[in-house]
């Protein structure tokens, strides 16, 4: 699915050059649930930008879904982002003046899918995430958890190769965060490859593999033997709430 080798990224600001990634190699197989963690400044954001084709590496190679994408132009990047990658952001990044439905349609719009088909698939996607009665609401009329679910529906709309989630629970309370994590786990159970970028260890524990970064290097690559199950945690939380 993803194969990167000796990937590095250096930012130059005039006189200074700052190495953000210092040559990272790793592979992610289809159907994996990977969390990338690290303190701020560890290079995980740069990593996420490179994986998400928002930025170009300074050196190294990146093979996505069997295709070498290290040396493509802006248009090809845009097209690959559109088809292969589904972004979920901390701040949801929905367009505030569009309804939930229109927001989900947006990525399909850029894929050139016809209006009727877009509408049908957007309704299906939102229904799957339990938002069938929120189709025509604007983002400011929805709760944080609902907004993030709209964003997930949007990320899934073009059936991407991977879901790239950048601190997806960062703006949510812990219970809502767990709800979102349970969605990712559910998606992963059905075969979707999920790459999660987070600095919260307990969130990372929901994945099945944790990549730890520090100073632009990959310092650990651990399998999670007993991932936390967000559904069970939620159940427990609700029981506790009912007792109290």
């Amino acid at each position: 699915m993803i194969k990167i080798s000796k990937l590095s990224k250096t930012y130059s600001t005039g006189t200074f050059t700052v190495p953000a990634l210092k040559g990272i190699s790793l592979e992610i197989e289809p159907g994996e649930f990977v969390a990338i963690t690290g303190a701020s400044g560890s290079g995980k954001s740069t990593m996420m930008n490179l994986l998400g084709l928002l930025d170009r590496p300074s050196a190294g190679s990146y093979i996505l879904d069997g295709m070498d994408v290290s040396n493509l132009d802006d248009n090809e990047y845009a097209s690959l982002r559109n088809r292969k990658i589904g972004f979920v952001f901390q701040a949801f990044n929905l367009l505030p003046r569009l309804t939930a439905l229109k927001n989900v349609e947006l990525s399909m719009l850029y894929a050139g899918i016809k209006l009727e088909e877009r509408r049908k698939r957007a309704v299906e996607g939102l229904t799957l995430l339990g938002l069938e009665d929120r189709l025509h609401h604007f983002p400011n009329e929805l709760s944080g958890g609902q907004n993030q679910r709209v964003a997930i529906a949007r990320a899934l709309a073009n059936q991407p190769a991977i879901i790239l989630a950048d601190e997806p629970t960062g703006a949510l309370d812990s219970q809502t965060g767990l709800e979102i994590m349970s969605i990712f786990q559910e998606l992963n159970r059905h075969g979707t490859t999920v790459v999660l970028v987070t600095h919260e260890l307990n969130i990372a524990q929901h994945s099945r593999r944790i990549l730890r970064m520090a100073d632009g290097l990959l310092v650990a690559d651990e399998e999670v033997t007993h991932p936390l199950d967000a559904r069970e945690e939620l159940q427990a939380l609700r029981e506790k709430g009912a007792e109290a």
Partner: peptide
Amino acid sequence: GIRMALGARRKD
């Protein structure tokens, strides 16, 4: 930025 992340080309 959002539109670009979702796959809008510069031309779009």
